[in-house]
């Protein structure tokens, strides 16, 4: 009797890695390169050196959190790669990465931007809502793309060992 296949370990790995890397995209692109916002920029606007450095500290804590998320994702991917019952599908992994990134945008967008108001996507405008909604919409798009790829990979059944040699 053949062992039933389980895709969820690979999906979990991609989801955690995608969420962690999505957090890095937010931190590197929106916080540091474009400087559109910081983690607490709606509560403590970085309009002087002290406020900017306090925001920098909280950005660092956020980066540490998404770094931990990424490391755990790598560990889960390693665990999944050593299981014979986990099909090794590129479509499933890439789909899960997109799903994780989209989930990061949606969860972070709803909690930090909408519910708590810690910061908004683009602080330097009076109309912050459209930017927050665009961020959420991009997250939903990523979720849909990820879901589609995961569905496309549901027939991939070769275990990792099949790719060896």
């Amino acid at each position: 009797m053949t062992e039933p296949l389980h895709r969820t370990p690979l999906i979990a790995a991609g989801l955690l890695l995608g969420a962690g890397l999505g957090g890095f995209v937010d931190g590197i692109v929106l916080h540091q390169i474009l400087q559109w916002h910081n983690m607490l920029s709606n509560q403590l606007p970085p309009d002087n050196l002290v406020a900017a450095k306090v925001n920098m500290y909280w950005d660092g804590i956020f980066h540490a959190g998404v770094w931990v998320l990424t490391v755990i994702g790598l560990r889960v991917l390693w665990a999944a790669s050593r299981r014979a019952d986990v099909p090794w599908s590129g479509r499933t992994l890439v789909g899960s990465l997109l799903l994780g990134w989209g989930l990061f945008n949606v969860v972070e967008g709803i909690i930090d931007h909408t519910l708590l108001g810690l910061h908004h996507v683009y602080e330097y405008t009076d109309a912050k809502m459209p930017w927050d909604m665009a961020f959420l919409a991009f997250g939903v798009l990523l979720l849909l793309a990820g879901w589609g790829l995961i569905r496309a990979g549901r027939h991939d059944a070769a275990p990792r060992a099949a790719y060896a040699a």
Binding site: L16, G65, V66, L69, I72, V76
Partner: peptide, 22 residues
């Protein structure tokens, strides 16, 4: 600290939950 890490913890719980789902 708790508010800032809330989304990260939530995402971690979702990922771990999916891993152990099967």
């Amino acid at each position: 600290l708790l508010l800032l890490l809330l989304p990260v913890v939530l995402l971690l719980l979702i990922g771990v939950g999916v891993y152990f789902a099967s």
